[in-house]
């Protein structure tokens, strides 16, 4: 039992990311308001970013920027265990940018929808479409 608890506590990052992801996914499917769906989409993307960044963490390591890169001590040996994994950080920089870009386009589309129908509530939109 205490084993299980220690595993659960040790991997808490993963549980948080799964929770966030479920919140985002639920908002995207179940919410009625289009902007709330966009908010859900952002939570969903953020959850994935948290997941990737959690992969990169290494106990007892520091940020992946070499100290004394140039100048004094430039030739000291670098040990991989001293620095966290840089690759997930690089990948997530890309994912953040993609998230921002998607958000921009989604907001622009929402504005177009609002201009046309004067509402962002999905049920009202469907009612207006059915009327015609």
């Amino acid at each position: 039992m205490s084993d299980l608890i220690s595993i659960i506590v040790a991997n808490y990052n993963y549980w948080i990311y799964i929770t966030l992801m479920m919140i985002g996914l639920y908002a995207m499917i179940a919410k009625n308001n289009l902007v709330k769906k966009i908010v859900g989409m952002n939570i969903f993307q953020t959850a994935i970013i948290l997941f990737y960044v959690s992969i990169g963490v290494k106990k007892g390591a520091t940020i992946p920027i070499l100290q004394h890169g140039h100048g004094h001590g430039a030739h000291t040996v670098v040990h991989a265990v001293d620095y966290v994994n840089p690759l997930p950080h690089v990948l997530m920089l890309t994912a953040i940018v993609v998230g921002v870009a998607t958000l921009g386009v989604a907001l622009a589309l929402a504005i177009r929808v609002y201009d046309r129908y004067n509402t962002l509530e999905e049920d009202e939109l469907l009612a207006q479409i059915r009327e015609k």
Binding site: L25, M28, L34, K37, M41, F44, Q45, I48, T102, V105, A106, L109, A110, R112, V113, R116, Y117, L125, I129
Partner: peptide
């Protein structure tokens, strides 16, 4: 006229798919 709404729905589904 309905294109932006249809496209926004595509965006939600497409984003879930890509994610």
């Amino acid at each position: 006229e309905r294109a932006p709404l249809a496209s926004l729905n595509y965006l939600y589904m497409g984003t879930i798919g890509a994610c």
